[in-house]
Amino acid sequence: MAGNARRWKIAVPLVSLALIGSWVHLSYNTNVLGDDELCGGLVSARAAEAAFSRTGRVSGDGGPGTRAGEASFDCWLDNTSALPGSPDLEMHLYTTRDRGDEAFTGGGPGQAAITYFSGPASGGVEKDHKAWVWLPPACLDGESMRVNAGLMSREGSADRVGLAALAVDAANRLMDHLECDADRLKAPLSIDATPVERDADPGRLCGVPGFSLPAASTGRARKIREVAPGARVPLWTCFVALEQAPDDSGDGRRDRGSGFATYSVVQDPVVIDGIKRSKGYAEESPIDGRPVTGFDPTHIVATCAGKETYFAMEIGTQQLRSWEKPGAPRDAELFRSFVEKAGPSFGCTDISGAAR
């Protein structure tokens, strides 16, 4: 009997310490004892935890609002942890209204390094720190709108799939808030790896059969580098840059950052709809005598076998420098070559109106 009493005297404090430890862990490292919804109900705490990709308690500040009569969303999330060596992390969720092709007009390797997804939800993931999703047309009362989720802290990294899922979840909740009649978006179950720079096949740039740069444009470049997805997808972009010879004094190395050009093709109907709603988009052809629509001669929408397809080219500094050389083709010729060669890769077999 005395032995049992001693064991109880030892066990009770240990159990109490374990319970206290569990309570501290749940209180400071998880949201089990906290709010299930954050930012006025537009963010799921569980989705936010998955995006942060680490143990920690998530809190939010902000929520739905009205900006110039339009629905908006702005929320800051904090992830704090009592575990040693765990810095506080911060994430920003917000909406943006912009030109429907905004994601494809920045140019450079950063644009090409985005991994896009399309289907039940359309959006993109930038490495391991930002994701966004476009709202469907039924939810728009004006220009294209995106719901963005970005990790703002330099320390740590977000889970790519979780980040996309957080943006999609917030978009669905915003859609409910707006009471728009559209199917709920579904987050992708996986995200392709971030495209990395590689040596290009000069006669098959961006993986497009027959697509090349004219010799008058490449100058003394030893080789061509590119950043491109591995397969044809509804949201596609490719960055092309020239590598100069070691004894070349100049321009190529200095202008390497923006490269030669960044090419894009879009066949996602949600994005196409946003493009056509944008300010500056015109049904009148930006290319004289050609049956296309768009913003200008290098940002157009063509009809390819009944499917609306957006083609774009962003000029890099290397291309601008090439114009100083005699006989170097201008942007219109280079863009036409791209459309002619890339079109068939996207099922566009009759795009003469955009390419002649």
Score class of each variant (00 low, 15 high):
W236E: 04
R256D: 04
A170S: 12
S157R: 15
I351L: 12
N172K: 02
K127L: 04
G230M: 06
L185T: 00
A113R: 14
G343Q: 08
E49N: 00
R356M: 01
W8L: 15
P246E: 14
R160Y: 08
L235F: 02
K127S: 02
V32G: 01
L163I: 05
V233T: 14
R220E: 10
A228N: 05
G21V: 08
S352W: 10
H129M: 00
D98E: 14
S285A: 09
R46W: 01
I10A: 05
I300Q: 01
C206I: 08
T194N: 01
T30G: 06
L17S: 11
G343K: 12
S217G: 06
M1Q: 11
G142V: 04
C75A: 00
A355L: 04
A2T: 04
V265M: 07
A121L: 07
S249E: 10
I114F: 06
G230T: 15
V161I: 13
M152F: 00
L320G: 09
A47N: 06
N31F: 02
V227T: 13
W76Q: 06
H299T: 05
G56M: 06
P202W: 09
S81M: 05
D78R: 15
V43G: 00
S22H: 05
R225Y: 00
E126N: 11
H177E: 11
V339W: 11
R256N: 02
S258G: 08
A45V: 00
R290L: 12
A51T: 09
R7F: 08
E70P: 14
E226I: 13
I20M: 14
N29H: 10
L213K: 14
E70R: 15
S86F: 13
P109L: 00
A165T: 10
